[in-house]
Design a protein around this nucleic acid. Structure first.
Lengths: 193, 193
DNA sequence: AGCAGAAGTCAACGGGCGTTGGCCTACAGT
DNA sequence: ACTGTAGGCCAACGCCCGTTGACTTCTGCT
């Protein structure tokens, strides 16, 4: 079915994708217009439709993302959290896709679903390898902490978080993430009263 | 200048504001349309313009918000974090304004600025009263954790976070927030290499 | 009762959006 | 050299948006 030979239009396709990621990251799903993306890629808006069908499918293509998380089960327990946080910050700053996912995921259901997929397929396995006890909850808590960090630092730009040095940031956050990954789970299920 | 006498239109004004909060919370700034808000309030869209001028000012009015944070300096140190997190969850679930702020703040600069104001005016004083050492950073870290929580639980609805019992959630998050509020600050500033 | 002004309705505007289809253009296979 | 086809451009469509201004209705005051 698929024809994977290189095509003459591969350059254009890539330019569209690059521009789409930039715009989705800067403006979110609804304010990023196909016309603006096409202008950035220096082609006609109709080309975007030809290659990606519609805006929703364009976003789906632009929001393909691999966190490339390292396997932390071989890392000394005391360093796993710091490695994880450092890796995440690097992935965030080196690629606009995560910004696009967060900006779009807050208002667009398909983007939110994509974030859930990435979470389930990429972060949860890491937690499972580290702790056999309630790994899903642990992964969720780590995601909360890390996404909250990104939200405050890169999106909302709360002054104290945006100004913080990276090493300081990791040092602050490290104990919290470690607690989520390896700490004692809270006792018992839901209680009465 | 202001005439604070009750007006005949106060009911309509309130209905508009209520509908606006609902729509902004559910859809974010750009997808929440004045027409839809007016329809929810069962009036004509032009009334929205008459009473609030334009969409931006309507949002500003709808996004007025008081966290009503308690003064934690009288709370026993071991409970301050739990009280704070519990209070925040209650505020979140009992009022749509925070949802509107988060959904809008991610793509709308004015909404982001409003979040920064609320953070600086309402959360930072609490941190300052609790710890004289780097209170701004501490407040920022608490905001990161708490907003990340809300993002994953209420907006993205990551299954493990959405399913978590409230008491369990507080028990998990409590040590992290406590660490941010009262823990030892990380040594030294930026280091070489 | 009569009137001024507030409250509310209605229809329209200009503009930007996603999307479509028709039309050139240039290259690859013969 | 010819031709089919993929790549690309242009103009337009229908839709929905924020916003405007003119018009009607209601109400409280004298």
């Amino acid at each position: 079915m698929n024809d994977d030979r290189p095509r003459r239009s591969d350059g254009t396709r890539a330019a569209i994708l690059r521009a789409a990621r930039e715009r989705f990251a800067a403006d979110g799903y609804e304010r990023a217009t196909i016309r603006a993306i096409a202008a950035d890629a220096a082609i006609d808006p109709s080309m975007v439709m030809r290659y990606y069908g519609n805006k929703e499918r364009l976003f789906a293509a632009a929001a393909e993302f691999d966190l490339r998380l390292p396997d932390l089960s071989a890392t000394p327990a005391g360093q796993a959290a710091a490695v994880l946080v450092g890796h995440f910050l690097e992935r965030w700053e080196g690629d606009e896709t995560l910004m696009a996912l967060l900006r779009a995921g807050v208002t667009n259901p398909a983007a939110a679903e994509r974030m859930r997929e990435i979470f389930a397929a990429q972060l949860m396995p890491v937690a499972e390898r580290l702790s056999p006890d309630q790994p899903q909850t642990r992964a969720g808590l780590v995601a909360s902490q890390i996404l909250g960090l990104a939200l405050c630092r890169y999106v909302l730009k709360l002054p104290p978080m945006a100004a913080l040095d990276r090493a300081e940031l990791i040092a602050w956050v490290n104990p919290a993430v470690e607690h989520y990954l390896l700490g004692t789970p809270v006792g018992g299920g839901p209680r009465g009263s």
